[in-house]
Amino acid sequence: MSASSAVDPRGPRFAAVVTTVVLAVVLLTGWWPLLAAQTVVFAIGAFVGLRPAPYSVLYRVLVAPRLRPTSEREDAAPLRFAQAVGFVFALVGTVGYAAGLPVLGIVATAFALFAAFLNAAFGFCLGCEMYLLIRRLAPRAEQA
C-alpha cells in the first residue's frame, strides 16, 4: 500500500470520539441539522478522502501537535469503507427526523452511534470487520 493511502491510526480514533459525542447529542436533542452535518462529514471521509475529512483536519491542527509523532500507519481503505457505512445510517437518520419519522431517525442514529462508540472505546472498527456480512446482506451495494 502506498504511503498516501495510510494514516496515523490515532486520527480515526479521535474522529470516532467526536462522532460518538455528536451522535449522542443528536439522540438527546433530536436536532436533525446536526445529524445532517455529521452525514456530510461521513460523506467527505468516504467519498473524497480521509485527509480533507473535517475531524482529521481537527486532529492534525489541534491534537497531533501535542502528541509524539508515530511511525505507525493504518491503511485508509477499511476506514473509508466504515465511513461509507456510517454515511448510510446517518443519511437514513436525517431523512427520518426531517420527514417526521422520529423512530426511524432515532434507530438509524443509534446504530451509527453503536459503531462509532465501539471504535472510540475499544478501537474496534465494526464496519471494517463486517465487510463480508454487509456484502452478503447487500450484494451489490458496495461495488466501489
Binding site: L28, F117, A121
Partner: peptide, 14 residues
C-alpha cells in the same frame, strides 16, 4: 426517548 436510547446504545456497545 432519546435519553433511554442513548443509554441503551452505550450499554449495548460496552
Amino acid at each position: 426517548t432519546g435519553v433511554w436510547v442513548l443509554v441503551g446504545t452505550l450499554v449495548a456497545g460496552l
